[in-house]
């Protein structure tokens, strides 16, 4: 029974949502709209689940003194501080009725002074690692790797004004060989073809998996055991 009821709920909701998408009148449409509203409400509760999960994992690591447990302590402190000053709108000039990130509020200070620079720093580090990794690993060892390398070079140069400058001397009849044009061609044709193939493949996979879930063939989402 513990498995049968979720399967029935999944089947009914799945059929209603699929039918409601195509049938835009009558009870199916009304139910489709209602389920969309329920979805918006339910997703908000995912934050509670996420916060609870974060607390559980990191509290366990701290209590067990696992490897790098002090980092977990920092995570927990950051979570608690941000949560408290955000929920109670500490320092918000308009009090509890004010906008969440109002100027002068503590949360705004944390966002602008801590979160903003930390996120930007972490993302910026990518440039250094990408440069180092490309230098060491980007080799024209095979035909496929050579094609990939050539395309990358064209895109890297073609996406900057240097690309235009390097090939500006070309006669108009060979304009398609100018680096920016080549870069645009790679993005518009081979890239689009590859992306479409991937997207269609994913879409077919999603349809197949959804049907399996709706029909109760795929039951992994229910968890293990009865």
């Amino acid at each position: 029974m513990r498995r049968r009821i979720p399967l029935i709920i999944t089947f009914i909701i799945g059929v209603v949502l699929v039918t409601g998408y195509f049938v835009t009148r009558g009870p199916f449409n009304t139910l489709y709209e209602s389920f969309s509203d329920y979805f918006a409400i339910i997703t908000v509760f995912a934050f509670i689940l996420g916060g609870g999960s974060l607390l559980k994992i990191h509290l366990k690591r701290v209590s067990n003194r696992s490897t790098d447990w002090p980092y977990s302590l920092v995570t927990l402190a950051g979570f608690a501080i941000t949560l408290v000053i955000g929920l109670f709108k500490v320092g918000n000039p308009a009090g509890m009725g004010g906008e969440i990130l109002a100027g002068g509020s503590w949360l705004r200070f944390v966002f602008d002074g801590v979160y903003n620079p930390l996120s930007a720093t972490m993302f910026s580090l990518l440039a250094f690692f990408v440069a180092s990794a490309s230098y060491r690993a980007f080799r024209a060892r095979t035909k496929e790797a050579t094609i990939l390398l050539s395309a990358a070079m064209v895109i890297l140069l073609g996406r900057t004004p240097v690309g235009a400058w390097l090939t500006a001397w070309m006669p108009e009849s060979l304009g398609f060989l100018e680096l920016p044009n080549l870069a645009n061609w790679i993005m518009a044709w081979p890239n689009t073809a590859g992306q479409r193939a991937i997207m269609i493949g994913i879409a077919l996979g999603v349809i197949a998996t959804s049907l399996r879930i709706i029909l109760g063939i795929e039951r992994n989402y229910l968890g293990r055991g009865e």
Binding site: A127, V130, A131, S134, Y135, R136, F138, R139, A140, L149, A152, M153, L156, L157, R159, T160, P161, V162
Partner: peptide, 23 residues
């Protein structure tokens, strides 16, 4: 910001070419 991007892209291209030449 295109200035830093242009120079960085050119540097990465040169590094990749140098790496391949050495290889």
């Amino acid at each position: 910001r295109m200035g830093p991007q242009v120079v960085t892209h050119v540097l990465i291209v040169l590094l990749v070419l140098l790496g391949n030449l050495a290889y």
